[in-house]
Amino acid sequence: MDNIYLLIIVIFAALLGFELIKKVPATLHTPLMSGSNAISGITLVGALASSGTENELLSIVLGTLAVALASINVVGGYLVTDRMLSMFKKKQR
């Protein structure tokens, strides 16, 4: 039954995603792509649970690798989006 609730959450989140992006000026396409790419680094939260638990060694190693990779995605993603947007502002002035 839990999975049904989770599926309903997916439908609402997906609808929200559609609505949020409907009208976006072309200049913002790349920053938006980059910004949402950073959000997909949320895998990091899942990786933390796999890395720090008392599991088989291979599981912990894979989880830790996932933490490192997802951190690159999160930190790099947000910083590069910020850099893009700061350029964008200068260009407008």
Binding site: D2, A13, G17, F18, I39, S40, I42, G46
Partner: peptide, 22 residues
């Protein structure tokens, strides 16, 4: 879904849907 983690599901489907529309 595999980890039964809400925030992964919500953020993942947000990015999935907004990515398709973008």
């Amino acid at each position: 879904f595999a980890l039964q983690n809400n925030i992964l599901i919500v953020a993942g489907s947000l990015v999935g849907a907004s990515g398709i529309i973008l």
